[in-house]
Nucleic acid binder design. Structure first.
Lengths: 300, 300
DNA sequence: ACGCTCGATTCCATATTTCGAAACGAGATT
DNA sequence: AATCTCGTTTCGAAATATGGAATCGAGCGT
């Protein structure tokens, strides 16, 4: 039973994917990364988790996540993988189905329900920046001729809220809802650069600095140096740090009091984003749009 | 404790909203409608729910839903409204927060987390029809000059997957993820018309025929007559049945074997959609698009 | 038609876990 | 300083989640 829970803490999956081979399936795998808990902190952690945590709920969520990551799953498969009894999994799924969080397709396979979409879209709408930034992101995509994105931070991770494609769009894994590590993207780093050092340390402690490509920053010192540069110049760049072949320029959108509300970016294949465009042309364009959005957010 | 659960079964909220006054907040209220359980079936139902249901999970979900419907809530508020103890709510929220399904904003207010967006978007992507229909829906919006929609059925309810606006867009409550009763919309009725009568009966038994406007069909016989007409002519119409001032024309998208995969519609203000357009021009346009989508789905 | 296999479902005794009352502590208000 | 409100913590009683075994049921091959 304890083994059941520990099985969720998988080692990082290094995805040295090329841009053109990025698929939706792979994104699910990436998301299942958790920092491995080392043996020493176990007592403390157990204390905390046992006393203040509802284990049954955790179990239900794990089941849903399993179904999600596998694009549908049957009871036996889930029970085996999660080291739970079939009857337990059965009851959890029945409950979730009754509440419309999962549904049973043909042939006894359970799928994640669209109820999650209702709540998720509500959560997105609640972010002030979303509606304000959307039209500007579209403009950004048009004027740059590349893909433009909006990302926000939650629980120390980045979540894509919106993406606008230009006509030259590349098929990419960054749908709305996609979760990424902040240190692996230009948008993430732009947000980190706005946060107090203490906060950044907390985030690194919680999520680590997993390596996605050979260019990913995996060293705390190096990251902090980069963040300083970003804070100075006002924009961040990502040269294939999350995905091989993909480059981005980004800047954070902040409150009047410098709290980051999210970040916007332009991203495209390395072949089209040479240095001239990447560090001259695009930063200027992005900073313009940043200003417009910040004004609109402030006086909405 | 039993009282706690029964408090979720609220009577229908009749929303005689006008088109122009429809807001996001109101949509949340609508969604909280549940069929009231009458006293006689209680034993049976308890038996079923008690034996095969994980009550703890249900409780967690109710808490999340409460937070969702109230656009954020504190522990005491939730505990009071849901008739649970503060410590219970506290522990559930802590668990959900740890798993990133909720997050705590400033001032001890909990909000629904964007984790729901990740899972929800995944659920949407899994519907074959979504990617296929999207570009066609956009075309439908352009060619009709009105709003065009894509809806699918799940658990006997309708869920909007996508909406495309024309330049003359009206500000409406139908974002992606929005849930509606099937019998109140043209798209819903178009889907119902494809289902075997037995299935339609089940759905009505589960969700009832709640009245949204004075034009809503609230009688089973009347509904079945309408469904027959729809099945014959291949398209459905909604004259202010869900929302005062809003009219729609819709048709179902089906598999080669007539299983409905979803429905598409054009909707706009009554003032612009007179009978000439509503029952002559638009049905033809929609049926064309339906054909294109069905071909693409079949040979994808 | 028959047995065979695999999965979902049901039943039940057991003990794990949840739950609520009450106490505590921090902030705000009077 | 007293009072109120709200989140957090503690702890034992009571509820209920759990896993294993038994049952059911569909699909397959002989």
């Amino acid at each position: 039973m304890d083994a059941a829970l520990s099985s969720f803490h998988r080692p990082a999956i290094r995805s040295h994917d090329r841009l053109d081979s990025a698929t939706a399936t792979r994104s699910a795998k990436e998301q299942s990364f958790y920092v491995v808990i080392d043996a020493f902190s176990c007592d403390e952690r157990m204390k905390l988790e046992d006393e203040t945590t509802v284990k049954t709920t955790t179990k239900s969520l794990r089941i849903v996540e399993f179904v999600h990551e596998h694009n549908g799953a049957g009871i036996t498969e889930i029970a085996t993988q999660l080291e739970l009894s079939k009857s337990t999994v059965y009851k959890h799924l029945r409950t979730l189905e009754q509440e419309r969080y999962v549904y049973k397709g043909d042939g006894d396979v359970y799928y994640v329900g669209l109820r999650f979409l209702s709540l998720g879209v509500g959560a997105r709408r609640r972010r002030r920046i979303y509606e304000t930034a959307k039209p500007e992101i579209q403009r950004l995509a048009e004027e740059s001729g590349e893909m433009a994105n909006l990302l926000v931070e939650e629980h120390g991770r980045g979540i894509f809220l919106y993406r606008a494609d230009s006509s030259r769009a590349v098929n990419l894994d960054t749908h709305a809802g996609r979760e990424v590590y902040l240190h692996t993207t230009a948008m993430g780093k732009a947000i980190l650069a706005c946060l107090p050092e203490r906060r950044v340390d907390e985030i690194i402690d919680r999520h680590g600095l997993p390596e996605m490509t050979e260019h990913t920053i995996t060293d705390r010192e190096v990251l902090f140096e980069d963040l300083e540069t970003i804070a100075d110049q006002g924009w961040a760049v990502d040269r294939e740090e999350r995905l091989k072949g993909l480059c981005c320029v980004a800047t954070a959108i902040t409150d009047p009091d410098d709290t980051p509300l999210g970040a916007i970016s332009v991203s495209g294949p390395r072949s089209r984003l040479k240095d001239g465009k990447l560090v001259d042309e695009l930063p200027e364009l992005i900073l313009n749009i940043k200003n417009v959005i910040e004004l609109n957010v402030a006086y909405e």
